[in-house]
Amino acid sequence: MTEDEYVEYLEDERRHFAWVMQHHGDMTPAEAGAAALKRYPYEPSEAPYRGLIFHDEAWHWAMLQIHGELYWTKHPELLNPPHEYTALS
């Protein structure tokens, strides 16, 4: 993955994470943006596990933060993101 591709992907995941935090986590846009930056910090190219957070999508990480571990068993309706979320891409 090139640097440009990494940055583009990082920004996309931040946008998705912030959307979830606003719509499901009752955060303001500013709070959601700050939460997204915290969850998805920029990692330099030499970082040993750069981009490892991308192994799960922003929806999953946001749901974990909002509802905790095993959220999908307590809230099976949240297992898959809604159309509004997927339309952000």
Rank of each mutant, 00 (worst) to 15 (best):
G68P: 12
Y6N: 01
S45Q: 02
I66H: 09
Y85N: 13
A30F: 03
E31L: 00
E5R: 07
S45K: 00
V20D: 14
D4A: 07
S89N: 11
M21S: 11
W61R: 10
W19H: 15
H67D: 02
D26V: 02
V20Q: 08
E84A: 15
E8C: 10
L37D: 15
E5P: 00
E13Y: 02
A62E: 12
G68F: 05
P48Q: 06
R50C: 01
E31P: 00
T86Q: 06
V20Y: 02
M63P: 08
A32C: 09
A47C: 06
E13Q: 09
P44C: 02
W19I: 14
A87F: 02
P82R: 08
Y42K: 05
R15D: 07
D4P: 04
P82T: 07
R50G: 06
E77L: 04
L70V: 12
E31Q: 11
A87H: 06
H55Q: 15
Y49K: 04
D56P: 01
H83A: 08
F54G: 07
P29K: 05
N80R: 14
A30L: 13
M27A: 13
H23C: 07
A87S: 14
R14H: 05
T73A: 10
H60L: 09
F17I: 02
G51A: 05
L10S: 01
V7G: 02
Q22I: 13
S45N: 01
H23D: 11
K74D: 15
Y42V: 02
A35S: 07
H24F: 15
A87E: 12
P81L: 09
Y6E: 04
D4C: 01
A35N: 00
E11W: 06
H60K: 13
V20E: 12
A35D: 02
Y71D: 11
F54V: 07
P41F: 05
A58N: 13
A18T: 11
D4S: 07
E8I: 11
A47M: 06
M21F: 05
M63K: 11
Q22M: 14
G25N: 10
P29I: 06
E57N: 09
T86W: 04
L10Y: 01
P76F: 03
E57M: 05
T86C: 03
D26F: 00
A58E: 10
M27L: 15
A58M: 11
A58K: 11
Q22K: 14
E57H: 07
L52M: 13
S45I: 00
S45T: 00
H55L: 07
E84R: 10
W19P: 14
E3D: 10
H24E: 15
E5H: 04
A35H: 01
D26S: 10
P81D: 14
S89C: 04
R50T: 00
W59R: 12
I66S: 09
L78F: 12
G33A: 09
R50E: 01
Y71P: 10
H60G: 08
Y71T: 12
E77A: 10
W59D: 10
D26E: 13
